[in-house]
């Protein structure tokens, strides 16, 4: 299968998905070493800074973290996530607990870009929300634009690792109708 990268990886968007779950894949090149990027990601509490709807991520122990996602009208959704694969400097895979409202899992891989060009970060997120009210809520949070979420998270990851800050155009505006701007502080 032809791909647009020579990297020895099965392009994530060719990964076959069992049972029609939603999955998202994305790659970004970051001008930092594999080890630095791995270390940031492996400390899951760091990831909250990169994500739109995540209220907080508590690291419970070496493998387990607790995720709290903001819902409309204060309806938080929480679950525990478990690291299922951990290759320092190379790959992290995780999966939500069996009883999580949103069954989700994912992996991230760090691969050397051509010499002197940093690290390729490949990420795949998979999730499957149940039906009903909660399902609709979750769908709203996660599925409306699943690609959008992931690409924004990876962009912020790159910004933070390369520049030490998350870029924002927060600033003065005149009267008129306005989109909320990025307001994550760094």
């Amino acid at each position: 299968m032809p791909t647009d990268t020579d990297a020895p990886i099965t392009p994530a968007n060719l990964v076959r998905q069992p049972g029609g779950d939603t999955f998202v894949s994305r790659a970004v090149t970051i001008d930092r070493s594999r080890d630095e990027l791995y270390a940031f990601w492996r400390n899951f509490s760091n990831l909250a800074r990169l994500m739109d709807n995540v209220e907080r991520i508590e690291v419970l122990d070496e493998r387990r973290s607790h995720w709290v996602v903001k819902g409309p009208a204060g309806a938080d959704i929480e679950w525990d996530s478990l690291v299922v694969e951990d290759e320092p400097g190379r790959r992290i895979a995780w999966r939500a607990d069996e009883d999580a409202e949103i069954r989700n899992s994912g992996w991230v891989e760090f691969r050397d870009a051509p010499p002197g060009r940093g690290t390729e970060v490949h990420a795949v997120i998979e999730y499957d929300a149940p039906g009903g009210v909660v399902g609709r809520l979750i769908a709203k949070l996660f599925q409306r634009e699943p690609n959008t979420q992931t690409r924004r998270e990876l962009r912020r990851f790159k910004q933070l690792m390369e520049t030490g800050e998350i870029s924002t155009s927060e600033g003065p505006r005149g009267a008129g109708r306005h989109e909320p701007s990025e307001s994550k502080e760094s």
């Binding site: 090149t29 001008d31 060009r117 940093g118 690409r151 924004r152 998270e153 962009r155 912020r156 790159k158 910004q159 390369e162 520049t163 998350i166 870029s167 924002t168 155009s169 701007s181 990025e182």
Partner: peptide, 19 residues
């Protein structure tokens, strides 16, 4: 800090447009 900036392609900066 990004590769475009480091190679003088400043108007191609990867990081200055908010996510």
């Amino acid at each position: 800090n990004c590769r475009p900036c480091k190679t003088g392609q400043f108007s191609g900066c990867d990081n200055s447009n908010p996510a």
